Amino acid sequence: MLSKEDSRRLAQLERQLRRDDPDFCARMGGGNFSVPAPRPPLALFFVAAAIAVAAIVLGAVGWWIAAVTVAAWSLVTAAGAFYRLRKFRTP
């Protein structure tokens, strides 16, 4: 019989194993665990587009330093979105 602390620790290890290696848990447990399907980072693309529009507006107003800063921010966000998209598409 496990103590309350041992049961809690075992449950914690089990949750961590399910999160780290769901395929192994599915094989060992008879496929009882559902693995959530990854989603493409659409929200991140929309955020990058909105930031790019803000950079264009700032450039049109004449605030060049702010426009360049926001444009760089948009590029970093878009790069992160493309990185996550590539990670999403690779098996």
Rank of each mutant, 00 (worst) to 15 (best):
L85D: 04
V68E: 00
A66V: 06
V53W: 11
R18K: 13
Y83K: 10
R15A: 14
G59R: 09
F24C: 10
R19F: 09
S74C: 14
L13P: 11
A37K: 13
I56F: 12
A48Y: 13
L58P: 08
P38V: 03
L44C: 10
A55I: 05
D23P: 02
L75V: 09
C25H: 02
E5I: 03
Q12H: 12
W64A: 10
M1Q: 10
V35Y: 06
R8L: 15
Q16A: 09
R89S: 02
A49C: 02
Q16K: 15
R9D: 09
A49M: 02
S7E: 14
V35H: 10
S34F: 15
D23N: 06
A11K: 08
A37C: 07
R9V: 08
F33W: 13
R19A: 12
K87C: 02
A79V: 13
A50M: 09
V61F: 03
F46G: 05
V57H: 00
V68S: 04
E5R: 05
F46W: 10
A71R: 14
R86D: 08
A37W: 08
M1P: 09
L10S: 09
M1E: 09
R84G: 04
V70L: 15
T77K: 01
R19C: 04
P38A: 04
I56R: 12
A78S: 03
A66D: 10
V68R: 00
F24G: 05
V61P: 02
K87Y: 00
D6M: 06
R27I: 07
W73K: 05
T90A: 07
I56N: 12
S7D: 11
G80Q: 06
V47P: 01
A49H: 02
L10M: 10
G30N: 04
A49R: 05
F82L: 11
A48D: 12
F24R: 12
V53T: 14
S74K: 10
G31T: 11
A66S: 12
R84F: 10
D21F: 06
F88C: 01
W73E: 06
A48S: 15
V68F: 00
R9Q: 12
A26I: 15
F82A: 04
F33V: 14
N32A: 13
R15M: 12
V61L: 04
I56H: 12
A67P: 06
K4L: 05
R9N: 07
A72S: 07
R89D: 02
P38Y: 02
K4M: 00
F45Y: 14
A48K: 14
R89W: 01
V57L: 05
A50P: 03
L75P: 00
V47L: 06
A66P: 06
L44Q: 13
L42W: 15
G30L: 06
A67I: 03
I51Q: 05
D6E: 14
D6F: 03
A72Q: 01
A72F: 15
K87R: 03
P41K: 00
I51D: 04
K87I: 00
N32F: 12
F33T: 14
Y83G: 08
R15H: 13
R86E: 09
M1D: 12
R39C: 13
R19M: 07
A43F: 11
A67H: 06
